[in-house]
Design a protein around this nucleic acid. Structure first.
Length: 569
RNA sequence: CGGGACGUGGCGCAGCUCGGUAGCGCACCUGCUUUGGGAGCAGGGGGUCGCUGGUUCAAAUCCAGUCGUCCCGACCA
């Protein structure tokens, strides 16, 4: 491709409202343009990168025997009603009515549709099957953000495995896991596989592939010693040994004006946070519920969601709180509470000598014995792990790292095959629902993640594997006939030898060409100028390192072909 | 959905307080000069000032409403 023919609208300044590096640089470099919140047009450069990411994903999926499909992006509501998700997913799904008055949706995922096709698998003999597609997903995100990181319309590679039993599923899952590791290696993304919650898609054995980045939206607890890694939605940690206070008698404690854990620590007769009970009033699918934690611990909402199966979870309003407990936040507790579901974090199990609200403004109880004084319905891990807490497995301090979730794999079991009627006959001739797994990689999000990881103050610095072009030939002076001739010759040769090469043949100043080449992040730049050319040489500059070397002109093509081929992965 | 900010040529901004013929930088077009790190000079093109309504002789500017975008929290590839 010749730069003079390429549409690359580069900008000196990024749009004022862009903050994430990928967003600023993809806009400045002319890769993408925003149409609407959460909807981006891919320009020629952006599409090239997107396609290369998709091709890597395709290559590795094909390598595990997966078969590519392309399913409709738009679905009839019926099938979503059958799976139960027409009700379950809420506002995240785009829904509309067609001219016949029928309900339709824009697909946010394709479990239902692949399962529909899978009804035609009739025998265990044709299993396992792994099916995938690279298709647009539509999700009415409450808040699109950070360029391509979080959008409402995006290409996803989604695959689905079909097996006769759990053992088969385990194998399909492993195979995907390994393929994902290879994909992220090829993309030069330092992704780590972490334990995760499966969220709204349902299922178990959930593993996310996380790329550390400050613009990410997830926190991952990582043990540097033993390698334990889990999304904080699910992560656990050891508790340090703790001696209960010797307060066996339940006593009413006047606490005028005390509304916070911190204030209760310092007041006369109060207690350190570790000896307090934090009482969170939550509404789970309409049911007012008390979630109890140690005073210094924080509630992890996803754990509450996962352990209760509730879909709609929110903190109670002040009115609801007063109505059910008789006091305002700051004086709440579960002592002697009846008629409300009480869920308690194990950090409080067996504890005595505790202090908690008395459900009367300005009063607390001290000397609370959980077992004696509180009617706990369920014990389940609810607390959010904090940095520095000891790893559950080895005791080393955990680190909390911000990450971008670029992939997610999990086991569905028969959650969709059962209701949608995807059954096969096993060797005994009995009907069995297909045992399924579901596996996703965001293509556009991966592009954004690579941009986040591979850039500097001059612009993007793509790995060869996904770069829009592998090599750019910069002709320093388009007036210098020898330079132009040498550039054209090299351009033709590299193209004929399969290198993705861009010839900067624009009639522009050298500084502009250098700056643009660096901004759009082409991994290798060959600079052809009168100086070196007079000595029969050209310059080769690596975008990533900035290193420049002189190479004889008759050796440059061989050298580049070799370098690019080894870098491609 | 709660909180905050902002909507003025393609991009970045000023003008608004105190209503009176819409301006600057970058980008773009023409010419001349220049030419190894985002050139200089001269000339030029391009804007329903988000939208609707109101106040006024007169609205980018004041008032009301509305739409949109971005950022921080609850959701996910």
């Amino acid at each position: 491709m010749r730069w003079s023919n390429l549409f690359v609208p580069t900008l000196r300044e990024p749009p004022a409202d862009a903050e994430a590096a990928n967003h600023k640089l993809l806009i400045r470099g002319g890769f993408i343009r925003q149409l609407h919140s959460g909807h981006y047009s891919l320009l020629p450069l952006g599409l090239r990168v997107h396609n290369k990411v998709a091709d890597i994903v395709r290559r590795e999926m094909d390598a595990i025997g997966a078969q590519e499909f392309l399913l409709p992006a738009m679905h009839p509501a019926e099938i979503w009603k059958k799976s139960g998700r027409w009700q379950a997913v809420g506002e995240e799904m785009f829904r509309f009515v067609d001219r016949k008055g029928a309900d339709n949706v824009l697909g946010m995922t394709h479990e239902e549709i692949f399962t529909d096709v899978a009804q035609e698998i009739t025998s265990y003999k044709s299993l396992p099957q792994i099916w995938y597609q690279i298709q647009l997903k539509f999700r009415d995100e409450p808040r699109p953000k950070s360029g391509l990181l979080r959008v409402r319309e995006f290409a996803m590679k989604d695959s689905y495995s079909f097996d006769i039993d759990e053992a088969g599923l385990d194998h399909s899952f492993e195979v995907h896991h390994d393929a994902y590791v290879r994909i992220f290696e090829a993309l030069e993304l330092p992704a780590i596989a972490v334990e995760a919650s499966s969220g709204a898609m349902g299922g178990s054995g959930s593993t996310e592939f996380m790329v550390p980045s400050s613009v990410g939206e997830d926190d991952v607890a990582i043990c540097g010693n033993c390698g334990y890694a889990a999304n904080t939605e699910r992560a656990k940690a050891r508790l340090a040994e703790l001696e209960d206070r010797d307060l066996s008698e339940l006593v009413r404690l006047p606490t005028p004006g005390v509304r916070t854990i911190a204030a209760l620590e310092t007041i006369e007769g109060g207690a350190p946070a570790v000896h307090q009970i934090k009482t969170m009033v939550m509404v789970l699918d309409g049911e007012v519920t008390l979630a109890l934690l140690r005073g210094d611990h924080e509630l992890e909402m996803q754990k509450l969601a996962d352990s209760t199966g509730a879909i709609d979870i929110r903190p109670a309003t002040p009115q609801e709180t007063v109505e059910h407990l008789g006091a305002n936040p700051g004086s709440l507790g579960a002592v002697s509470v009846e008629g409300l579901r009480i869920i308690c974090d194990p950090a409080l199990e067996g504890r005595r000598g505790l202090t908690t609200g008395a459900n009367e403004d300005d009063w607390h109880w001290s000397g609370v014995d959980i077992a004696r004084d509180i009617a706990v319905d369920e014990w389940t891990d609810l607390r959010k792990v904090k940095a520095g807490e000891p790893c559950l497995d080895c005791g080393s301090p955990l680190e909390i790292v911000r990450c971008i979730e670029t992939g997610h794999i999990f086991k569905l079991g028969t959650k969709y095959s059962d209701p949608l009627g995807a059954f096969v006959l096993d060797p005994d001739g009995t009907q069995k629902p297909l045992v399924m797994g579901s596996y996703g990689i965001g293509i556009g999000r991966s592009v954004a993640a690579v941009a986040e990881v591979h850039h500097d103050d001059k612009g993007l610095a793509w790995p060869v594997s996904v770069a829009p072009f592998e090599v750019v030939i910069t002709i320093v002076s388009s007036k210098d006939e020898a330079s132009v001739a040498a550039g054209e010759t090299l351009y033709d040769e590299l193209r004929s030898r399969g290198v993705d090469v861009l010839l900067d043949d624009r009639d522009a100043r050298a500084g502009v060409k250098f700056a643009d080449a660096e901004l759009i992040g082409i991994p290798y730049r060959v600079t052809i100028g009168p100086r070196a050319l007079a000595e029969g040489e050209v310059e080769l500059t690596s975008r990533a390192t900035g290193d420049t070397t002189r190479v004889p002109i008759d050796a440059i093509a061989d050298s580049l072909v070799e370098t690019v081929e080894t870098d491609r992965r």
